[in-house]
Amino acid sequence: MGALGNGTRGLAGGTDLVPLLRDGLVAADRLVDLRRVIPSGIDGTAIGAGTTLAELEADPQIPDALREACRLAASPQLRNMGTIGGNLLQATRCWYWRLNYPCRLHGGDVCHAREGQHREHAIFANDYCASAHPSDVAAALLALDATVETTRAAGPLAGLYRLPDDHDRNLVDLGADELITRIHYERPEQSVYLKAMDRKRWAFALVGVAAARYDDGVRLGLAGVAPIPWRLASLDDLEQATPLPGTAYKLELARALGRRAIAAVGG
């Protein structure tokens, strides 16, 4: 959950970091158990970064979009372990990246997925790197207009993420010693999260769509469609998608889920 610099890494639930350490995709010579340091628990519309997905899905105060995103995010065991802060910082499921191909995210000069197997990859902002961001929780929080508080600053959740380029391959804009401490959301009138998966229970999102209705309209957040969690101003923006041959079906999924989600929140 955020690098602390000098070879030290913060560990919260560890559900992503421990396998990444073992596979040599992340290096650390020291781990700091963050659960004793970062806030956890729910206080109105503020959520401690150390709150587990299981705690969030069980709390009736939490908007439906976020509860459902937590409930569908992973297996019960992983939801008992994983924290909301860690979920926002999880690494891509791109198999080329996970198998340590020298792709752009690993500092190389090619995106293997674009020419290779990319059925689960991005349909937006996929020119440089076609990986898809897996966080259901981030999609829900984008729709819920969330802000993220860190040990240094506070700002919109969208600002936590960045698209990679030649100068910086990171997908997250977080300092080496900066930690997410709290997430704040705006309480909607109604919200929902819909997720298309390869199987019925706990798989990563092919496409996930969160919709939240406010006084001024419906806000949408998507998972599985871009290298970072993706916000849409309206479903019309889906026309700007740039699907690869193997991901054209995702556009259809996003349209269908988007229509259903907007109808579900009465938008």
Partner: peptide, 13 residues
């Protein structure tokens, strides 16, 4: 009391 995955839980935690 809550189910956890012991293969990816570091014992020190």
């Amino acid at each position: 009391g809550a189910p956890h995955l012991s293969c990816i839980t570091l014992v020190h935690t």
